[in-house]
Amino acid sequence: MCLAVPVLVVKRHDGEDAIIDAGGVRKQVSLALVPEAREGDYVIVHVGYAIGRLDPDEALKTLALFAGMEPAA
């Protein structure tokens, strides 16, 4: 199952592209499916597209959950 790891929108370019930060790794993604996303928002990304925008409180709670998890055996 694909885990919904929230990532931070760091910089929004003109048009649909944005830079996100996923646990320190920066990548370019498309915001075509969540055009309302702004810098500072958390989104869920799948294969290069942000597919959902999250409430920041929810996103931080979810990140805290994942952070509390030990690596898989």
Binding site: M1, C2, L3, I51, E58, T62, L65, M69, A72
Partner: peptide
């Protein structure tokens, strides 16, 4: 290489907590 998260994240929680957490964990 997927972490087997369900049991590690959900065991020990109340039923209500677990049901509320599940949709937050899975994106697709």
């Amino acid at each position: 290489r997927r972490p087997r998260v369900a049991n590690r994240l959900l065991a020990g929680r109340t039923v209500d907590e677990a049901v509320a957490m599940v949709p937050r964990l899975f994106s697709l």
